[in-house]
């Protein structure tokens, strides 16, 4: 059983034929060439696969592609030229918030959503928003510092 699924990906209309058991992570990586979306745990526990669905961060590894028919998906590729992401990237570099980098796209996408939501960037709020993104290298301190500075620099 194949199902036609149409959605907006980074501003462009796309249509894919998928089996109902296909997860969005696979559709993005294997069919649509989106490589910022990482395959980590594949069970909603790490955040490396985070994308924006209708503007909100979600895990693409536990969403069936058929579930998102008609919705809008944005990945890091689609937001990289925004002032928010530019600020985040430069502050991540400055703070040393990137080591192996595997978790970084997920963190940037979630932090972008946090900024867009207008949440006050207290350390508590930043930690709360980023609790679903795991980093095995940096120890989080620098990530929180980078996000805080990025928010300040945009203001």
């Amino acid at each position: 059983m194949y199902v036609k699924v149409s959605f907006k990906l980074n501003g462009e209309d796309v249509t894919v034929d998928v089996e109902p058991n296909e997860i969005l992570l696979d559709t993005l990586r294997l069919k649509l060439g989106i490589k910022s979306v990482k395959r980590g745990c594949e069970r909603a526990e790490c955040g490396a696969c985070t994308v924006l669905l209708n503007g909100s961060p979600v895990y693409s590894c536990t969403l069936l592609t058929v579930q998102i028919d008609g919705m809008e998906v944005r990945t890091l590729e689609g937001i990289q030229d925004t002032p928010e992401v530019k600020a985040l990237v430069s502050k991540f570099v400055e703070a040393g918030a990137v080591q192996c980098g595997f978790c970084t796209p997920g963190f940037i996408v979630t932090a972008y959503a946090l900024i867009k939501k207008g949440v006050e960037p207290t350390p508590e709020n930043i930690k709360k928003a980023l609790e679903g993104n795991i980093c095995r290298c940096t120890g989080y301190k620098k990530i929180i510092e980078a996000v805080t500075k990025a928010v300040e620099s945009i203001k």
């Binding site: 909603a44 955040g47 985070t50 669905l53 909100s56 961060p57 979600v58 895990y59 536990t62 969403l63 979630t110 709360k128 928003a129 609790e131 679903g132 993104n133």
Partner: peptide, 9 residues
């Protein structure tokens, strides 16, 4: 509960 990404779904 869970995380922001999960609570959104």
């Amino acid at each position: 509960m869970a995380s922001w990404q999960i609570r959104n779904v």
